[in-house]
Amino acid sequence: MTLLLGICVAVIFAVSVYLMLSRELKSVAMGVFLFSHAAHLGILAMSGQPVLPGGVVKGAPVLGTSPNGIHVDPLPQALILTSIVISFAIMAFLLTLLVTTFRTTRTLNVDRLSEEDRPESMSHSVSREVTA
């Protein structure tokens, strides 16, 4: 199961990095959302019972050690839950930012956005776009 989760995490990370390298801000935003999902899955894969140096298995907090592995440590799941809530808020903000950016600049293309920043380098970036 851990191996399966590990593979999932790796694939999602790869997809999200691919999306984040795109020139369209929409895809970049999707990449960021996937990135946080991959991180959450990664924490889930790490959870269970921490094995400390010396082979000591640390049990769930508060209840103390549970050597038979009856209780799964709930703390990583609490971390994921908190992090999911935060990433919801950020997702909402990022989408709002996308909409506002589109309204003010009429484009969501990274090249065109940076063109407007530096008018003197406009010819340069236009030629790059053509070759791309």
Binding site: F35, I43, S47, P50, L52, K58, L79, I90
Partner: peptide, 19 residues
């Protein structure tokens, strides 16, 4: 956002190895 995501992943993993 990338920084935060790496932070949360690292924090989770640190918990995993140190408890």
């Amino acid at each position: 956002l990338v920084g935060s995501t790496v932070f949360v992943l690292t924090a989770g993993m640190i918990y995993g190895v140190t408890g």
